[in-house]
């Protein structure tokens, strides 16, 4: 027996679906409207749409920033669409998909971070979804935000702030002491390795995506040239059409865009989990807390005793 959907659910469905698809469509439209006319294949960075005057330096608003904001809206639409019309017994494929995602992410976080960090499951899911969808957006032809250094650097700095927060949880003194850990002389090395964490996370993700797009663009251009050299003698439109370009770029795109994009998203999330849970000295923290509570109790006891006297 199938339950009939109410009218409200249907209207919301259409609303959420349009919220999911319209941002991507608008990104395409913006790209088509603003792309400068070029001949052949060129490799360019993100386009600057406009600049906002700021006191220190002008803030350029680029294609990648706009695209990443649009992808964010699209992911919110997807989440709302998947969770629309939930019921206690899962009957629709949407609810099954949503539950599968939630369960998988929770299992991943429990396995890699431990029970204490279970509150991080939504954050990790957000990182995964944002990174994967940003890389996959190049399949639609829009500029992938992850091939811009600034976007990925923003995420990596966020992770760095989290790491520092968890290192500071055991008190600022033990945080500073951590820099001189094995021997005192190694302090500069420790500072460098601390700064290298967000740097390497940024370069890993952005370098992979950018390298994929650069290599596939260069191969597509080379195949076009090669086909005009090899098949140029054919008469008419047959000679101008780049026949050799069919096939190989699609296979490369399957690797560079789909596989590499998803893999990098997974690795970024895994590294986030590893660094954040590794930065937190849990035993030390709980020892400190227990000691503090004991001191508090002693103080209360002392004050009570003095009052009694």
């Amino acid at each position: 027996m199938k339950k009939q959907k109410s009218r409200r659910t249907r209207v919301l469905d259409i609303l959420y679906l349009s919220m999911m698809l319209l941002p991507l469509l608008s990104a395409l439209v913006i790209k088509v409207l603003t792309a400068p006319p070029t001949e052949g294949i060129t490799i360019t960075g993100a386009q600057i749409y406009f600049t906002v005057p700021m006191p220190l330096q002008d803030l350029p608003v680029t294609e990648s920033q706009v695209n990443s904001a649009l992808i964010l809206i699209s992911i919110v639409g997807l989440c709302l669409f998947l969770t629309n019309g939930l019921s206690v017994r899962a009957t629709s494929w949407r609810q099954h998909a949503a539950e599968w995602i939630v369960l998988k992410v929770r299992a991943l976080v429990r396995e890699n971070m431990g029970e204490y960090f279970m509150g991080y499951a939504p954050f990790i899911a957000a990182v995964l979804a944002l990174s994967a969808f940003s890389s996959l957006s190049s399949l639609l032809g829009i500029y992938p935000p992850t091939s811009d250094l600034n976007i990925v650097a923003g995420w990596a700095i966020l992770v760095f702030v989290l790491i520092t927060y968890y290192k500071l949880k055991c008190g600022p003194l033990s945080y500073l002491k951590g820099f001189t850990q094995p021997v005192f002389i190694l302090t500069p090395m420790n500072v460098i390795s601390e700064a290298a964490t967000p740097l390497s996370m940024t370069f890993r993700h952005y370098g992979n995506v950018l390298a994929g797009s650069v290599i596939s663009t260069m191969i597509a251009a080379a195949l076009g040239k090669a086909s005009s050299l090899v098949l140029g003698w054919l008469p008419g439109a047959l000679g101008e059409f780049p026949l050799l370009r069919i096939g190989l770029p699609a296979v490369l795109s399957l690797y560079f865009d789909v596989f590499s994009g998803c893999l990098q998203a997974f690795i970024f999330a895994m590294l986030t989990m590893a660094y954040v849970s590794g930065a937190f000295a849990m035993e030390e923290y709980f020892e400190r807390r227990a000691k503090k509570e004991e001191k508090k109790k002693q103080k209360i006891n002392q004050t009570q005793q003095t009052e009694v006297i």
Binding site: F203, R204, G207, N208, L263, I267
Partner: peptide
């Protein structure tokens, strides 16, 4: 992916 990092710096 982690071993790849140095290569990506060069890239």
């Amino acid at each position: 992916a982690i071993a790849e990092t140095t290569g990506l710096y060069a890239l």
